[in-house]
Amino acid sequence: MVPYILCMILFLIGVYGIIAKKNLIKIVIGMVIIEYAVNLILILVGYRSGGAAPIITSIEGASREASTFVDPLPQALIVTSIVIGLSVTVLAIVLCLRLYEKYGTLDILHIRRLRG
């Protein structure tokens, strides 16, 4: 239970970063923290304490129960989700760079032409 709660705290730290920070880069870092928290939860779902790697080395020797294996599916999933997260982060940073070129600042209080 404790790891889940810690993940939740990490998630909330990310949300705090997005809500409270005024710097574009810090907002992006907040997004990245959220993404890590979700990835950690996903990998915790498949974790089994004391579990073995899900590799069968020989057919006769497969005496180990399937239940002793760590679930490999979430690990495959987070590899995908890390790649997706990377592309979102890259796009966000590029937008920050362009915004800095246009406005000369990264402070969101000065970047607010859209309203209403």
Binding site: V15, I18, L24, I27, M31, I34, E35, V38, V88, L91, A92, L95, C96, R98, L99, K102, Y103, I111, R112, R113, L114
Partner: peptide
């Protein structure tokens, strides 16, 4: 790639990314 477009896109990206999370 003008000021409004970039600002809107960044806002969209942050909120959309949060939704995806």
């Amino acid at each position: 790639i003008d000021r409004e477009e970039l600002e809107a896109s960044f806002k969209y990206l942050v909120l959309g990314g949060l939704g995806s999370s």
